[in-house]
Design a protein around this nucleic acid. Structure first.
Lengths: 232, 232
DNA sequence: ATGGCGCATTGATAATGATCAAGTGTGCTG
DNA sequence: CAGCACACTTGATCATTATCAATGCGCCAT
């Protein structure tokens, strides 16, 4: 009984993850049904790793509640954050011999875990779905290229402005107000700058009236237009 | 007759592109045969565009001779170079609605052009080949993540050292000597630094005895070990 | 040969961002 | 409620990198 409810929740999450990419694709609904049958929910506490770089990539993960961070660290202590994942985002979809990053829980979270092997079996049954799945990888690739462009061409303050606009878009649910689940250090490591530079960026944007900071993590974009032009 | 010879050349190039990824894959040889049947050779002069960002992604391209550069430019004049492509490399494999970058000929070159639509038809016949093709996208994704890591975490001089090691590996044919087909400006735009900083990087590596510069574009790595440790 | 052109190098200076260090605020714990 | 821990902010200074400007070098055309 409670299991049925779980399956409904899982199916909802899967739809929110794949739905927009799989519109009008033959077999999309059946695909999601079959995935839901096999998908498992796993809980992680804040700070725990969902998987580690170099793990064999056995699963694909989708946060159902809470947030993840994809990161790579070196022995020398430096760290690059590749992405932040929120509800309905996807991690590990195109890894081959090993993951190329670790996934860390930013908050306590529930993550849907799908066996890649099983996914492959389902793809064999629904070839048009498999094609769209490949398209999703292409989409992620283009997002990372956007990020690479920003890293190569923009100043620290501009990168921060870009980041805030992205968060507004993904966390704001149509409003200008959102709660950041990650620390200043996480943001700095994502944008390739020091913690202090990230913090100064926040202060400057606040002073200039582009954002307001209700608490450390609760942000409102008060002047989208200026923030956008600031980012370019 | 001369067409037959062309087809042999094309097949060789396709094998060098796909071969290493498709080892022991059922249908790999047949796949390459069919691709070769349809593939066309197209010539470009130095500086010409093979395709432009926002073009509909109709083809996949493989340089047969000469080099390409994948880049994105803004109206304001800044440019990010995403990758340099040499013989047997692949461009445009996972684009959806449009390319997310332009491809420019670094040198006069001959490029093999394969219709994506046709490729898809062949994939439908050889599902295991399609899977490996998806793996190739994953591999490219991991290369870009490596680049993103370097951009976020390394200093300008370190990034240049990384770049030279990559070029040694890809252009050196097992030796430490190689000819760079791109300008200092291209390198700078690839590594997210100014032309002058790139140039100073070359000078410093030369002064410190890690590389020698026979001409502007003819480089020899004279101390791989130091160059590697310098890059980290 | 010679002058001009396109690239690269080098120098001087300014801006950006990192690092080190101190201070602030908030929440948790005893 | 005191005080401690932790994250963030702010300030001062230093290092890196960008920018502006001059110079050098090879190549081509006259």
């Amino acid at each position: 009984m409670s299991l049925d409810i779980n399956k409904v929740v899982i199916k909802t999450s899967l739809s929110s993850c794949f739905g927009s990419h799989f519109k009008e694709v033959e077999g999309a609904n059946a695909f999601i049904e079959e995935l839901a049958k096999d998908a498992e929910e796993v809980s992680f506490a804040q700070g725990e790793y969902v998987f580690k770089e170099k793990d064999a990539p056995e699963y694909v993960y989708i946060p159902e509640s809470g947030s993840l961070m994809l990161e790579r660290s070196t022995a020398s202590g430096s760290r690059q954050v590749f992405a932040f994942l929120f509800t309905g985002n996807l991690a590990g979809l195109s890894e081959n011999v090993s993951y190329s990053f670790s996934a860390k829980a930013l908050t306590n979270c529930v993550v849907i875990r799908i066996s890649r092997k099983l996914m492959q079996d389902i793809f064999d049954k629904y070839p048009s779905v498999a094609k769209r799945y490949h398209d999703m990888t292409g989409h992620i690739l283009s997002l990372i290229l956007d990020q690479l462009f920003i890293m190569g061409q923009k100043s620290a303050h501009q990168r921060l402005a870009h980041f805030l606009l992205d968060m507004e878009h993904r966390l704001g649910r149509g409003t200008h107000r959102f709660f950041l689940p990650m620390s200043r250090q996480d943001i700095a490591d994502y944008l390739g700058m020091s913690l202090e530079t990230a913090s100064r960026g926040f202060s400057k944007l606040k002073k200039d009236g582009l954002i307001s900071i209700e608490s450390n993590y609760q942000i409102t974009v008060t002047d989208s237009e200026k923030l956008i032009s600031y980012a370019d």
